[in-house]
Design a protein around this nucleic acid. Sequence first.
DNA 1: ATTAAACATAGACGCTTATCTATATGAAGT
DNA 2: ACTTCATATAGATAAGCGTCTATGTTTAAT
Lengths: 100, 100
Amino acid sequence: MDYENFSKQLKAISDPNRLKIIDLLSCGTLCACDLLEHFEFTQPTLSHHMKILQEAGIVSAKRVGKWQHYTLESSFIAGFNNNVSTLFENGPECACHCKK
Amino acid sequence: MDYENFSKQLKAISDPNRLKIIDLLSCGTLCACDLLEHFEFTQPTLSHHMKILQEAGIVSAKRVGKWQHYTLESSFIAGFNNNVSTLFENGPECACHCKK
DNA sequence: ATTAAACATAGACGCTTATCTATATGAAGT
DNA sequence: ACTTCATATAGATAAGCGTCTATGTTTAAT
């Protein structure tokens, strides 16, 4: 498995505020201003977090008028779950190259 | 869900070298010197990584003579998978508090 | 055309992290 | 006792991260 790539996905997720953003988006698409209401930090900070989530392929954005609509990428979730499985399980791709 | 706690677990995992360590341990218990053979960094660096994994409850250690035997904590894996599920799924604990 | 609202970018600051070298500890063999 | 092997700790350094304030950009309404 590609540790570098999986590491980037994990780092994008492993911030408490971004975890909450993902949790919020798991219910459906939201715009930035709706997201911001759930947090104590400033708008530029949200913008920064959303950029990180987008660059990691976790969230997609779409402008609708003045608003940015953010959506969880289902393809990311599938790939992520796949990586978690192969990481913890003693599969044929295991780094130790042992016979299972 | 406890974002702070899940964030700590994720941060402990989200380093490419620690991912590889976990992958290696998914095949079974290994000592530090066996682990070290798979990496380019120095022994103190491995020691540092193992400490982080232990403090996060991901790995347990047991001295056997001169060697430290490291084992993946199955309880961690169960809890981690649980957190991943509740994060991505629109469950009753979702941060948006919407009716499902 | 102006203004206001929603969002992005730039730059700065303090904190954390991954790595290294040097050294300490601890167990086992001679 | 001394040495050797396996591992841990201490301290330093450079890079990355999360947050802020200040400012820019874009869209829509008046």
